[in-house]
Design a protein around this nucleic acid. Structure first.
Length: 368
DNA sequence: GATCTCATAGTTAAAAGCGG
DNA sequence: CCGCTTTTAACTATGAGATC
């Protein structure tokens, strides 16, 4: 029997991921990269502009845009396509591990791929604009080929600032050769999954799948091998489906906080916590236009709804799975959590659990 | 035979650029 | 100066293919 309670898992997870103890020194790069390592690969905030640097939302008390931009500029953070071909950043010293684990060769290696690759290799790096002049393919075809080659870690998109005009380089030339054999990839995957489990304290296999977007067959096999080699332990925690923990955590006798961390966090769709539970969340809030998810006392218990735009847009509604008394008691707390991002200057919050709140004096008069 | 999974194509967003 | 295309990134729909 597992000694861990659900509340202890939640509390320890939030501590490890920097939510309950956010970093406070904007000059402390070491703490930042250490935390970043636990959350890798870190995708840029969902609904932000393409080219924006990643951010550790709620994990720093300061705005970490400067920190991540600076690290990216110095190539300490590297852009790639991980987790099912999505854009994300990893630390340079973990690039080989994550690239090997997530490397995905295109199903069809066409003439376009061949030409794009060789043209970039010959020139020693080109922008998409230059590539279009060199080659006689449509912009769409070139863009698609670049993305495929980026997923395969044959090309590297050198994104060092928010500029859209990025340089495309030969990956092996810029970094190193990524091993192509299945064994190396499996070894890397084992390590990557192991690290994810430690960061999450406890996860089910379907949560691993939700996070990394790999076939369930692969995940089943990788977990089996990790359990067999004694790195992970299968375990049943009260109130949860069967899942896995690291052997160190499962056998840990040190006392952890047993209280659910009180508080409300609004998390975007790229956040590691959301990613890990995305499949469940999609089912639960099916058909709704979700902007953000709400973590209430450590558990996902709500959504922020609305129609996203690049310019200003309103929050249509905030839905919470709480009982009536708690809904009323915590309205101000919920609104404050949402207002951290959706500031009153350019965004109205129209409803709270279906009821119009435009008459609320705090919300009134900010926007017509 | 039914379900699950995967790849591909199309859609969404705002703004800028271009041609007629 | 209107309308069309292009840009980025991710999500959805669809059809094909594989597996139970």
């Amino acid at each position: 029997m597992n000694p861990w309670k659900y509340s202890e898992i939640i509390a320890e997870r939030m501590k490890r991921q920097g939510l309950t103890q956010p970093l406070d020194n904007p000059l402390d790069e070491e703490s930042y990269t250490e935390l970043f390592r636990r959350l890798q690969p870190v995708a840029p905030v969902h609904f932000s502009r393409p080219g924006d640097p990643p951010k550790l939302i709620h994990r720093t008390e300061y705005d970490d845009t400067g920190m991540s931009s600076s690290l990216r500029e110095r190539h300490i953070l590297v852009k790639g396509r991980f987790l099912g071909g999505r854009v994300a950043y990893v630390l340079e010293d973990d690039l080989k591990l994550y690239a090997t684990a997530f490397r995905k060769m295109p199903t069809r290696f066409n003439r376009v791929h061949e030409d794009v690759l060789s043209t970039i290799r010959e020139a020693g790096g080109l922008t998409k604009e230059q590539l279009k002049q060199e080659l006689d393919y449509s912009a769409g075809d070139i863009g698609k080929a670049l993305q495929d080659l980026q997923c395969a870690f044959l090309l590297q998109e050198d994104q060092i600032d928010t500029d859209w005009e990025t340089g495309w380089l030969d990956f092996a030339e810029e970094w190193f050769e990524i091993p192509t054999d299945a064994e190396s990839q499996e070894e890397a995957l084992l390590e990557v999954i192991q690290r994810f489990v430690v960061s999450m304290v406890f996860v089910t296999e379907s949560q691993i799948k939700s996070w990394c977007s790999l076939p369930s067959k692969t995940i089943k096999e990788m977990v089996r091998r990790l359990v067999e080699s004694g790195r992970l332990v299968r375990t049943q925690v009260e109130g949860l489906d069967e899942g896995v923990m690291s052997i160190e955590d499962a056998e840990s006798t040190s006392s952890y906080t047993s209280e659910y961390p009180k508080g409300i966090y609004m998390l975007d769709k790229s956040d590691i916590l959301v990613r890990a539970q995305m499949d469940e969340l999609k089912t639960r809030y099916k058909g709704l236009e979700v902007l953000q998810y709400l973590l209430v006392d450590g558990k996902f218990q709500g959504v922020v709804l609305g129609h996203w735009r690049i310019g200003p847009y309103d929050v249509d509604d905030i839905i919470l799975d709480l009982d009536q008394s708690e809904l009323a008691a915590r309205q101000a707390e919920v609104l404050a959590a949402v207002r951290e991002i959706y500031n009153p200057e350019d965004c109205a919050i129209l409803r709270y659990n279906g009821a119009e709140i435009s008459k609320c004096p705090i919300e009134e008069g900010k926007r017509s």
